[in-house]
Design a protein around this nucleic acid. Structure first.
Lengths: 359, 359
DNA sequence: CTGAAAGCGCTTACAG
DNA sequence: CTGAAAGCGCTTACAG
């Protein structure tokens, strides 16, 4: 092929189209004030040459980059993957690219790392997911650098930045009420990691729902896990080995609910006849266990899309010099998914019937 | 704070250290030929100013970028997540950043998308995972643009590019022999998606192991899934509803093995007493089902690290002008993980004993 | 509606 | 061992 090895630049396009590079720039950026004839001539030259503008040149000259960051932590492969899919959906459409960085909540060098990312890469904006979504050091770095960011599922400082979330508190209330309505009174609860916002919020929703029905959480039936399968095994075991074991267990996420199911099976406790189990998140695991889990569906991909949309809007405003941070909040709807893992409390009226199915 | 809002540049550092910007550049890039006194003076200035070099300026001037891409497809959240973790481990150490792009195998615009990524972002290199690791269009774009790339778990054109993989063929042989050694003769097989290399390789290993023991695959016992849970449900159902149902089933990955387990449970077929089930990959799901799956462990994170190491080396050589592509191949070790989902074939000697446990 | 000039923050190639 | 000049490929600010 006689194709020149050197990549075509804006100069080549300008020469071919017989215009100045400024005009090529105008066409590329869809700016007004270019005659249609000229615009078409430039387009033709771009196509003919297979010209692709250099991102680094555009970033350097325009003092804005086309990179959006995702800062994430140990939230499990599926969640991270879904968030990134959602972000990619929007980034692509807007001409941005996605740069990812795993940042452990307690890494000693978070500040350095975040600062390096922000200052060297000069990202146009960042989306944060738990647990780093609540890391004040990282947020501080972004703030000081003037980099727009959106937090997904944050816990603290809700009012000082744009956020996207579901109502975890209400969701757990729904889940708990589902159990209460089935006649359960002794309900065990398995918490997640302390540094995740979800841990606090989900527990709070649980307590609130109990209170609404004149019940109180029983300290003996509260266990702590780490949002993963292995950590919930001993927690569920302690719960189920009690003489006065609970008739239902609410695990703070699906993996821990799956572990609870496994422990019950191992002990010969049948689900949902002798024990009801519910999870949270509606991850793939929820339908891979038997019986399938009653859980709360969180629209993860849509949340990521919403976060990206907000971020893109913030970037646009910032570039336009409008910097009166509107701090938009978006709360998406969750849904209670009823499947086979819950049934009437043993000894309750209807306990011999099929588990209740409702929307 | 009296901190100037403008980020410090190389000029500020040079002025403060009373040297030329070229000297600052030398210090930053750890080039030789700088007196120790001067080097320290520059370092001090960099620290004092909190100077961070701009990536876009470095990329533009140096004609090389600090971005490495990961092109991936629908291989499941966990796999993608682990690959990216492994890559990040190495990228960070080497001063590179990770840009991710999901590319569906059959997307109509793959060529455009790949070309845009490569030419606009001008990535220093790319790591590809299935199924895009075998997409000739994408590989062609990279080749023509002269962008170094490493393919993980490829199927075709093995000899024309650097690759990282495990021996899937041998791994499936190991798995199959484990079943044969337990006395199984009627072994069902659930294939994955046609466009994934693993589908062909795993099936080939299965057939080979059977042949070695004087057996042949039984066409009636070969089903096709899509590497996910839902697709394996009907496949396993067909297999297990047969009058002459298999005594063992080898699913091409863990999700499909988990589905097989669920179908067996639903039909009242006990595992491993009446049916043995094995999976592949040792994903988290393997230990979340009951009984836990016998499977093949693939060192995904290490594979990604190896791929990144090779890529970084290729980039270094290319920058140094050494472009005699060595096309390194790395094959990492897999391991057969024995857990509870297999046992002696029904009616075989030892069938009443506990399942065999071996390394 | 269009363009010439300057500059973004670095590195390369060269000179001393 | 160090630096002055030119240039990477664009955009900004300005002029006409």
């Amino acid at each position: 092929m006689a194709q020149p090895h050197r990549k075509p630049t804006i100069n080549d396009v300008a020469a071919l189209a017989e215009v100045s590079i400024k005009t090529v720039s105008r066409v590329m950026n869809k700016e007004p004030n270019v005659r249609d004839v000229v615009r078409q001539r430039v387009q033709a030259a771009i196509t003919q040459l297979g010209y692709q503008p250099s991102l680094s040149a555009r970033s350097l000259a325009g003092e804005r980059s086309f990179l959006i960051g995702h800062f994430y932590g140990d939230t499990g492969g599926q969640y991270t993957h879904d968030i990134q899919l959602g972000m990619l959906n929007r980034c692509r459409a807007a001409g941005y690219h996605l740069l990812i960085e795993e940042i452990a909540y307690n890494a000693p060098d978070v500040e350095e790392r975040a600062a390096a990312l922000v200052n060297q890469v000069r990202m146009a904006g960042v989306v944060l997911t738990p647990p780093v979504t609540d890391n004040p050091i990282v947020l501080g770095v972004l703030q000081r650098a003037g980099v727009p960011y959106v937090r997904i599922a944050p816990d603290r400082d809700i009012d000082t930045s744009p956020i996207v979330r579901i109502d975890e508190w209400k969701a757990t209330r729904d889940l708990t009420e589902h159990l209460i309505n089935l006649g359960h009174r002794r309900i065990g609860f398995i918490k997640g990691k302390a540094q995740h916002a979800a841990t606090r919020l989900r527990y709070a929703g649980f307590c609130e729902a109990l209170a609404d029905h004149g019940l109180a959480p029983m300290p003996d039936l509260i266990e702590v896990g780490e949002f993963n399968y292995a950590s919930a095994l001993p927690a569920a075991t302690r719960l189920l080995e009690r003489a006065d074991r609970p008739t239902a267990i609410l695990a703070s996420n699906d993996e821990m609910a799956a572990a609870t199911l496994a422990v019950a099976h191992g002990m010969g406790i049948t689900v949902p006849e002798q024990l009801s189990v519910v999870g949270f998140d509606d991850m793939p695991i929820a339908t891979m266990v038997w019986p399938q889990l009653v859980t709360i569906r969180q629209p993860v991909i849509q949340m990521a899309e919403a976060a990206a949309d907000i971020l893109l809007e913030l970037i646009k405003r910032k570039d336009a010099g409008v910097w009166e941070n509107p701090m938009p909040h978006r709360q998406l709807d969750h849904s209670l998914i009823i499947r086979g893992s819950t049934g009437p409390a043993p000894g309750q009226p209807g306990a011999a019937l099929r588990p209740v199915r409702s929307a």
